[in-house]
């Protein structure tokens, strides 16, 4: 599903953020990406949704070379990838509903279908009562769930989450992880970047560990329970 071939990313003239990465994530996999701050986790995720172009090497997603895509092809790649951004990227001037609906509007859905679907996903995440609120009126955990709702609402084939549990208490973390798990069971390939021990050891999944831009260990603890 996701393949990185000898990928190096160098921002400006600094030391490379990622250095000669080789990684294969099969379809339906559930992977944790760990590593210290600045190790390159966000950069690796950005490569997959084509927000960063590799300096060397290439990235293949769903059989297609992302590195060679034109700016008219990239949108169609992104429609298959749900992303929970580290900084959420929610529009403060819009309601929770609008923030989630945007994913479906881009696909050209009819209003009534969007309404049903958005309500459904918000309910699943337990924030349907905040539908009309502005994200800046929400707690950190609630904002995180809005970001997750936006990423999941079109049932993407790939779900990328960058530090998705940073603001949550243990109970909420488990709840969010359960949602990731459910999406994974429905066939979505999930990659979660996190340095939260509780999250990474939530279940026995594959862990890819980054250290200063290189993969140090990539182990399958055990296949899913």
């Amino acid at each position: 599903m996701i393949e990185l071939h000898n990928v190096t990313v160098t921002y400006q003239k600094d030391a490379p953020a990622l250095n000669g990465i080789n990684l294969k994530i099969p379809k339906g996999d559930f992977v944790f990406l760990t590593g210290a701050s600045g190790a390159g986790k966000s950069t690796l995720l950005r490569l997959i949704y084509a927000a960063v172009t590799p300096t060397r090497g290439h990235v293949v997603v769903d059989g297609q070379n992302v590195t060679r895509m034109t700016r008219h092809q990239i949108p169609f790649l992104r429609r298959n990838i749900g992303v929970v951004f580290q900084d959420f990227k929610l529009l403060q001037s819009r309601s929770v509903y609008d923030n989630v609906a945007i994913t479906l509007e881009v696909l050209g859905w009819e209003k009534k279908d969007i309404g049903k679907k958005v309500y459904h996903i918000l309910k699943q995440l337990g924030i349907e009562h905040k539908l009309d609120a502005s994200p800046q009126r929400l707690s950190g955990g609630e904002q995180q769930r809005v970001a997750l709702a936006r990423a999941l609402v079109n049932e993407p084939r790939i779900l990328l989450a960058d530090e998705p549990t940073g603001n949550l208490d243990d109970h909420n973390k488990d709840q969010i992880l359960r949602i990731f798990k459910e999406a994974n069971i429905r066939g979505t390939t999930v990659v979660i970047a996190s340095h939260d021990k509780r999250v990474v050891h939530y279940s026995h999944n594959r862990i890819v560990h980054l250290d200063k831009g290189s993969i140090k260990e990539a182990h399958d603890v055990t296949p899913q329970a």
Partner: peptide
């Protein structure tokens, strides 16, 4: 600007 970025990230075409 922010809105444009988000639109692009959720897969909006340049025309959209």
């Amino acid at each position: 600007k922010e809105e444009l970025e988000i639109l692009s990230l959720v897969g909006a075409t340049p025309f959209f």
